[in-house]
Structures are given as C-alpha cells and as structure tokens.
Amino acid sequence: MMDFWQYAFMQRALIGGVIVGLLTAIIGVYVVLKGMSFIGAGVAHASFGGVALGFLLGIDPLWAAVAFCLAVAWGIGTVTRRGGIKEDTAVGIFFASTMAFGVLLIGLIQGYNIDLFSYLFGSILAITAEDLKMVLGVGFLVLLTVALLYKEFLFITFDPETARVSGLPEPALYYLLLALIALTVVVSIKVVGIVLVSALLVTPAASAYQLSRSFGKMMALSAFFGVLSVVVGLILSYYLNTASGATVVLTATAIFGLTLLWRRWREAV
C-alpha cells in the first residue's frame, strides 16, 4: 500500500510537495482576497525569463528566477501604484514580455540542451536534496514573515486605505507581500511548474473561501486543502502513472468543485 514511500525520490517529492502546498495555500489566501490572482500568474510566467537568464549566465536557474521575479513583482506594484495603470494591464504587459525575454535568451544559448519542459510543467519526482533545502529555507522564511505580520497583512488585505490612515506602513507591507508571492512562486516551480503554479496559489484558497466565515478559518482550511491536493495528487500520479504537477492541480480543482457544491447545497437547505 505505502510502497511509494520506500523510494528516496518519492520521499523528497512528498516533503517538498507538502511544504509547497502549505506555502502556496497560505499566500494564496491574500492573493484571493486581495484579488491578485492575475499577479500570481504574471509573476509565475515571469520566472521563465529568470530561469533562462540563469542558464545564460551559468547560475542556478531557480535563484536567478528569485531575483527576476522579485524585480517583476515590484515592477508590477510600482507601475500600478505610481504609473496610474490598472493592475491587470500592468500584469498583462509583464506577463508576455518576460516570457518573450526568456524565449529570446533560450535561443541565444546554443548547443545547450535545457530541460525546459521540467520548468514549465514541474518535475517533482526529480527534486534533488539541494532543491529541497531551498524549498525548506524559503518556505520557513515566508511562513515566519506571515506569522509575524499576520495582523498587518490582514488589515492591508481587508481595508488598505484605513490601514494606511491608522499609521501602518501600508505601501511597504504591500511590496513585502509581493515579494512573498514571488518567493512562493519560484520555490513552487519544481513541484507544479511555471504554467501550473498559479493554480496552487488560487484554488485551495478559493475552496477555503467557500466555507469560511472568519479569516483564521480560511487560513487553516486553505492550508489543509493545499496540502491535501499535493499529497493526494502525488499518490494518484504515482499509481495512475500521470504527470505529477497536472494531477496535483486537477486534485485541487476537484476539491474546489466539491466545496462549491457543498456550499450551494448548504445554502439551499
């Protein structure tokens, strides 16, 4: 029954997957409530440019993606806040241009066989001990920040203007939140890939939103759904021999469908 656990790669995949599931689900609560899903998708696609830059410069693609995504997330934030452009327009511009930048760079790297597919769609079963360390380190940092600034992030998500009036450093907290989104996206690339990571950032939190009447409960439920999606998705992909990232995302979507049905059923009675 538990035979998948005997393989070291499967153990690493599960540990890394659980952390990523937890991380995306927690940050996802802010993304969903603040209406930033498109920013999540934009930053995820921007990481492609970062990965390509890493290959070209000969540095770790994931660390290059961290730097690149931070710059893009803050760029979207700055253009939106100061440039008087709507957020979704700003994302729209960065979304495609950073992908184009990545494609351009990949073209410049001649005679170098890069496994792009694993970055685009994830390769959780190929996660190395080194990757796992990065996931653990970044995950700890992000979760610690959320724990320390729990009340501040709640306030700026619910009512940013009043938060600012009350004296909280609202712009700084917003840029910090963008940074947490960027970090979360990059460490999740190994698990579900660039194309699918935004699903983990949105779907578990959206499921939790259906069932929650308080913020704390939404956090807890989202975390639960996030981890559940990864664990169930991985086990399913192992037995069904399907692509792991895609199976995880579709599991999360199935959970969302069930919460939607459950809420409608509850509202009907």
Binding site: K151, L154, F155, T162, A163, G167, L168, S214, F215
Partner: peptide, 15 residues
C-alpha cells in the same frame, strides 16, 4: 471578506 465583527474592530488597535 471572511472576517468576524470582533476581528474588524480589533484592527483599530493594530497601529
């Protein structure tokens, strides 16, 4: 927004 009345009022204390 999923938040209880008590938690909204508490925001007044955050700063």
């Amino acid at each position: 927004f999923p938040v209880r009345v008590r938690d909204v009022v508490m925001m007044g204390r955050y700063a």
